[in-house]
Amino acid sequence: MTDLERLLSEYKQAHRASPDADPAPYLAQLAGAEREALSQLIDAYLARAPRRDFDPAAFPASPAASAAEGLQRSLAGTGGLWPALLPRLRTQARLRRSELVSELAARLGAQSRQEKVARYYHEMEQGLLPAAGVSDAVLDALGRIVGWSSDALRRAGELPAPGGPGAAGSPGAVFTRTATPPRGGGAESRDTAQRGEPAEEEWDEVDRLFRGR
């Protein structure tokens, strides 16, 4: 048996015993074309690996848990993939949420309304703020902070809302441009009530930036 065959066999054995087995130590034992060959063979093996059985004991501590949670919020919410994406971008940028919010508010010229910016940003991460209402100015400022373009952030928010087109909660139903603060019993008011925001609070530039694209 060649080194290539032996290492492939050993890696497969390790992967079967523990699916998070790292291929790096096996690759490190070879060089050049042999190493590339092993990499390709392991790759082909992993691409065909069946779904691992669910382990309720191991799941909560697995990195898969936070990925699943973000995705669940994305699918349940109205902000597309933002709940799965924004916390990760913030982590990559090595920023605490408060730091990101402070810089976002500054870039939007809304330092005096930082609390409201924080509330809206929190809703973006949680999938509670419909993506269609968020202005390009917000996405441009946010993108500069986390190192993404506003277009890419916009695309990430484009997952159709639950219930399909035209359903309550879909961007088209909720985010018609409004020149005046939303009042009465409409969808906007329900959103406001869910956020615990005072109904009588004045609609201002920050609201327009986050909800009136």
Partner: peptide
């Protein structure tokens, strides 16, 4: 179901 799918494929995807 999301937990089952993400957990089930996570390690293989990360290893690749």
């Amino acid at each position: 179901p999301l937990a089952i799918l993400v957990f089930g494929y996570w390690d293989s995807l990360v290893a690749r």
